[in-house]
């Protein structure tokens, strides 16, 4: 099965996966997009490319070499063998971007939607990540994966990812914070949220997005449980007594949209 791509890695020919272009946009300047016959998609990115849309990794050095690893075709991994100076705290990696602990091994960590393969080494507190690859698995004809695609080029995504990377999260709550971020990215993308909310992770891993102007405000609060808590502030009513919980798979209520429109107007 072959596909043609334009200069932006968008598929221009090939039936069956019409919405894969969403994923192509997701990975921006990644070098290749392959679609094996089993329907899984593989995207190979240089670390430097990933850096452009996943801010948490901000300290990678320049990519100076690349090679193809034959052990697990068709995965192509590009090695960042620059002098590291990398002392990335493992707590600042969020799923599914979990580095593999063994140097030189190809291993996948699967979230069910996105498969990550990484090569690196880990010490007691730090991770040297040499390379990793992002693979998108099991795209079905209904475009299920495309619906879940995350366009990390959005400014709000970068803000959330950056905030997650620098947030001081209690170690026991790191997984909760990662889950909260995933839920938030999903909701932000699907609801096409706008504006410039205040993005806050608390030490217990709770993520809050807050839009407020004057006496009116609205907040989305995520605890990684698949639910988003909406809180409204208006004259005489507090956030803590004026909220509702909605599953992230559901549409945000109209009240949220109208309130946000008023705040952003």
């Amino acid at each position: 099965m072959s596909y043609a791509y334009d200069d932006d890695n968008r598929i221009t020919a090939g039936a069956g996966y019409p919405r894969i272009a969403d994923w192509s946009r997701f990975f921006g300047s990644c070098s290749a997009l392959e679609l094996p016959s089993d329907g899984a998609a593989t995207v190979t990115c240089r670390v430097a490319d990933l850096r452009s849309f996943v801010n948490p990794y901000g300290t990678f050095g320049p990519v100076t070499d690349s090679s193809i690893y034959g052990a697990c075709p068709p995965l192509r991994l590009i090695v960042d063998d620059s002098p590291y100076g990398l002392a990335l705290n493992a707590a600042n990696f969020y799923e599914p971007f979990q580095p593999h602990p063994t140097l030189g091994a190809n291993t996948a960590a699967t979230t069910g939607r996105v498969t990550i393969t990484s090569i690196g080494e880990i010490t007691s507190n730090t991770v040297n990540l040499n390379a990793f690859e992002v693979a998108i698995a099991h795209i079905d004809a209904a475009g299920l994966m495309a619906r879940h695609a995350i366009d990390v080029s959005r400014p709000l995504f970068k803000v959330i990812a950056t905030e997650r990377a620098i947030a001081k999260i209690d170690m026991e709550n790191v997984q909760l914070a990662d889950a909260a971020m995933r839920d938030a990215l999903f909701v932000v993308q699907r609801a096409n949220l706008r504006g410039d909310p205040k993005v806050m992770f608390s030490s217990d891993g709770i993520l809050t997005l807050q839009w407020q102007r004057g006496e009116r405000g609205v907040a989305l609060i995520f605890a990684g449980d698949g639910m988003v808590s909406l809180a409204f502030r208006q004259p005489g009513k507090f956030y803590a007594e004026n909220g509702i919980d909605v599953a992230i798979a559901e549409e945000l209520p109209e009240r949220f949209n109208t309130t946000l429109a008023v705040i952003l107007a």
């Binding site: 608390s202 217990d204 709770i206 907040a219 809180a231 956030y239």
Partner: peptide, 17 residues
């Protein structure tokens, strides 16, 4: 625990205000 964390987060929003 999740609901408690979310409620506390909302209270802190009000407290800051």
């Amino acid at each position: 625990q999740a609901n408690l964390g979310k409620l506390r987060a909302r209270i802190r929003l009000d407290l800051a205000n």
